[in-house]
């Protein structure tokens, strides 16, 4: 299968999801006997993609792409997929990728498997696995159309460096766009400066009711700071107004799959577990030894988060030397 990998960029550099997309695309190309071509939109340094084995990359440029309109991005990717005769288009299931992919699928008359965590080729068909019911179950979906669109969940397909780095050959791609392709446009972006987002973090330290009050969240922030981690929160403390909604992990918050998830003072309501159970390593700190969070924890401390967190932060400092 010929696979087109859409590589996301930020400020002229490839994002981490781009390398994950390359890895997922190459794995699929190997299984199906095919090749991978990358696609970036706008100016970006693609050198780093070669480290992950990408040798061929389209660079799409057009004045209509400057306003970050997802409808114009979708049209560009659709035209590139047709020009390259791609069978599969892979995108990250990021906030932008999730908006582009459904439009792209309609344009290509393709079936879409969203937010996938594994792919296999079975009898010539692409079968994707994806978490449903916020991770309480896994669904295997076969795409039944000739053209296929797949988005991949961030942080799941670990980017793999190639044995020998490739030199990326960039090819200019000029999409044919008109004003009608530019629909909703981005007028400004505000970033939480100096604050990692749970959706992108490798390590998350989350706090819940066990912290007793918003004034004690500095204990969570302190451990997070030591680990270079993002701060997360349970629904209970977000609903109580202790923490902003952007930090909420769970079924009505963000679904995360970091390398390390530390849950402090969170009992583990099913909504919360749904949002974080696919984390690679889970550490639970809770004073109730029967709390559900311990059932999915790899490591646990039965104790008051209020007392355990400062000690844990001190001991972590001696290991990470940050």
């Amino acid at each position: 299968m010929k696979i087109l990998a859409y590589l996301e960029t930020l400020d002229g550099a490839l994002k981490k999801t781009a390398f994950e997309t390359i890895t997922a695309a190459q794995t699929l190309a190997k299984q199906s006997g095919g090749s991978v071509v990358g696609l970036v939109i706008g100016s970006a340094d693609t050198t780093q993609a070669g480290v992950y084995g990408l040798a061929d990359c389209l660079v799409a440029k057009h004045a209509h792409l400057e306003k970050q309109s997802t409808s114009a991005f979708a049209e560009t990717i659709a035209q590139a997929a047709k020009a390259e005769n791609a069978d599969v288009v892979i995108l990250p299931a990021s906030s932008t990728g999730k908006e582009i992919a459904p439009r792209l699928a309609v344009k290509l008359e393709a079936g879409l498997a969203p937010d996938t965590v594994a792919h296999e080729i079975a009898g010539g068909d692409l079968v994707a696995t994806r978490p449903v019911y916020a991770g309480k179950a896994r669904l295997k979906v076969k795409i039944t159309t000739a053209k296929k669109v797949v988005t991949i969940r961030p942080n799941v397909f670990t980017a793999k460096k190639a044995d020998a780095a490739a030199t990326v050959a960039n090819r200019d791609f000029a999409p044919n766009l008109s004003d009608s392709h530019v629909k909703a446009t981005v007028t400004s972006v505000s970033r939480n400066t100096g604050k990692l987002d749970v959706a992108e973090a490798d390590i998350i330290v989350s706090g819940g009711r066990g912290l007793k009050g918003p004034e004690n969240f500095h204990l969570v922030e302190s451990l997070a700071g030591t680990l270079g981690a993002a701060v997360g929160a349970s629904r209970a403390v977000v609903d109580a107004g202790w923490r902003p909604h952007g930090e909420q992990v769970g079924q009505t918050g963000k679904t995360v799959s970091p390398t390390l998830y530390i849950a402090a003072g969170i009992s583990g309501a099913i909504q919360h577990l749904a949002g974080m159970s696919s984390s690679k390593v889970i550490v639970a700190i809770n004073k109730d030894k029967d709390a559900p969070i311990f059932q999915i924890a790899d490591y646990g401390i039965v104790g008051d988060a209020f007392e355990v967190l400062p000690k844990l932060t001190e001991k972590v400092k001696s290991v990470v030397h940050r």
Binding site: K136, A137, R138, T144, V283, A297, Y299, V302, K311
Partner: peptide
């Protein structure tokens, strides 16, 4: 354009290593 071929529960996790809250326990963790 898609067809469900199967649904399963996520693989069950093995029993985690659970400690108390002494200084020694936290160091071990």
């Amino acid at each position: 354009r898609t067809e469900v071929v199967g649904m399963e529960l996520p693989a069950a996790k093995g029993k985690g290593k659970i400690f108390g809250d002494s200084d020694g326990d936290i160091s071990e963790l």
